[in-house]
Write a protein that binds this DNA or RNA. Structure first.
Lengths: 307, 307
DNA sequence: ATCTACTGATAAGGATTCCTTATGTCACTA
DNA sequence: TAGTGACATAAGGAATCCTTATCAGTAGAT
């Protein structure tokens, strides 16, 4: 014998009739007509195999529960409450007001763009938990691929297009030369790579961007490699040499250093949102991606040195 | 914005698709066709506002949950489990396999009929709790009226017909004379009330049955009143006198005493099931009433001295 | 490559279920 | 004895659910 299957609406009708002591008031509350409630209750009684309300009798003009109905009432209410809890929880989740968002980003964007973006994004979603990782592009891509993170912000190295990831370009970040304010280059508005050959060039983590360009010979000329950004900046401020950096990696509000765009070759790295192809994002991640796209569209944020 | 309302069947479909990793297997389990499941899931996704399953993609021929779906799965399962618990509990209740049955009965029936009846009745309902009270008819009626018990077994005194109780006659219990086996009456097959006038008559709790009959004068003749049944029996066995008792109140298998029906007037009390008019019984009480009626119908139990 | 077998998606029709309007019944009231 | 209030019932239409038939993409096997 198979168990009956209650409908939530039906249970609600029952509770309302019981608590408002009447079919009419219950019908009103349910935004239904009275016969609808009658039928609903009858159906429920049939499923249960027992009547729930006393047959309208004696002086008491109020509809009263049977003992069986009294036994059922709290259970029905609990079940409805449970249902509504789940429904509400899922609604919040689906409006990304709650949940867990795991995000990885390349450090430059993490420092320059994300602080403002994220603080705006979470302004009206206080329940959202965010885990953030910063690392270089390869590591970000790896985290996305391994699903250690819902969404990534990185640039797409060559050879990675074929993989199971989708790339949505968001920012364009132009490579430039960084030197101290008293350096001969400091007042230039643009530079050609050959001008750098006579300089002491310090390589750094972003120097890979020069690979596969005409400026590649610079890499072999260079005798320094400093991967730590803070040390690199300190060295540059000391006047130890010059380096190349994407604009977004150039520290904001640094008064001792100058950024001069490299124009030939003009090297631009495209940074954007990275996610697993054919995998649906969690609502929160989806919302963040959309948020980033609309925000940056507004600001037309292109990573070149503004005037 | 109103919350969506899930259907239990729908949630089941979702869980099955998720756990069996496929719409086809889920359809089979649900005894539906595959398109039905597709639509069911789609409807659920619309209600939630988010997709639950990854769009059938790459190599993985298995249908996989989205992060959102993974979050929903346990909640859906809990909700289904809760529903099924309630449904099962109510089904048991409605098959009176569980619950609480409060019963009051007149002592004679309680001793003579109920032990067998109740033991048969509860044989296949081990979960049923029974509270039992025995008392005289008035007390039983009072308990029923005050809803201290669900159902009562008593006879209906005159003047009680108008009250809010229903009486279903079950047993007929004939009044007779009880004396010791060596008493002159012992071998008689029937007696007239006038024959008792010369005897020492001991009144008892059931003597009220003689009121309003032609035998009423006996009551004023009698100088003894023993209300405790055990004492009464002891007195009778001592040969202290005789008394009148309904057959059901006459102790079964008593070898020292004899029961002789009183034929003029023939006094029969109707004992039956008493319940509150217009009040539905709890399923267990309902079942007991029905059980008593069918059992006694089988045995044609009439309370006269059988040969 | 092409065929087959598997997946789920989609369309159109019929069967059910649900809800509404209109009316009925019963008990209490004036 | 008509009136009122509260629920039951009947019949028709609307919405939902489910089915059959068909489509479309992918994987594996010729």
């Amino acid at each position: 014998m198979s168990l009956p299957e209650f409908k939530i609406a039906q249970l609600r009708h029952f509770v309302w009739v019981a608590e408002l002591k009447g079919f009419h008031s219950a019908a009103e509350k349910a935004c239904r007509t009275q016969p609808a409630i009658s039928l609903s209750i009858r159906d429920l009684e049939n499923k249960l195999g027992t009547v729930l309300f006393e047959k309208r009798n004696s002086k008491t003009s109020n509809t009263e529960l049977t003992p069986f109905g009294r036994y059922f009432l709290p259970k029905a209410k609990e079940l409805i409450a449970h249902h509504d809890n789940v429904a509400q929880d899922m609604a919040l989740m689906s409006e990304h007001k709650t949940g867990h968002l795991r995000l990885a980003s390349v450090p430059s964007i993490a420092c320059r763009m994300l602080p403002e973006l994220l603080s705006k994004f979470i302004a009206d979603v206080p329940e959202l938990h965010i885990s953030f990782y910063d690392d270089n592009s390869e590591a970000v891509l790896r985290k996305v691929e391994k699903q250690q993170v819902d969404i990534g912000i990185a640039s797409l190295p060559h050879g990675h297009e074929h993989a199971d990831i989708t790339f949505i370009p968001v920012w364009e970040d132009q490579l430039g030369v960084v030197c101290r304010e008293d350096h001969p280059f400091a007042e230039a508005t643009e530079l050609h790579w050959k001008e750098l050959r006579k300089q002491r060039l310090i390589r750094n983590g972003t120097s890979r961007l020069l690979e596969d360009t005409e400026a590649e010979p610079l890499l072999s000329d260079s005798q320094f490699l400093i991967s730590n950004m803070l040390s690199l900046i300190a060295m540059l401020e000391e006047g130890l040499g010059i380096t190349t950096l994407p604009w977004f990696a150039f520290p904001k509000n640094n008064s001792k250093l100058r950024f001069i765009p490299l124009t030939s070759p003009k090297i631009v790295r495209h940074i954007g949102i990275v996610q697993l192809k054919n995998k649906a994002l969690s609502p929160a991640a989806e919302a963040l991606a959309k948020f980033i796209l609309t925000e940056t569209a507004k600001n037309k944020a292109i990573g070149v040195k503004p005037e």
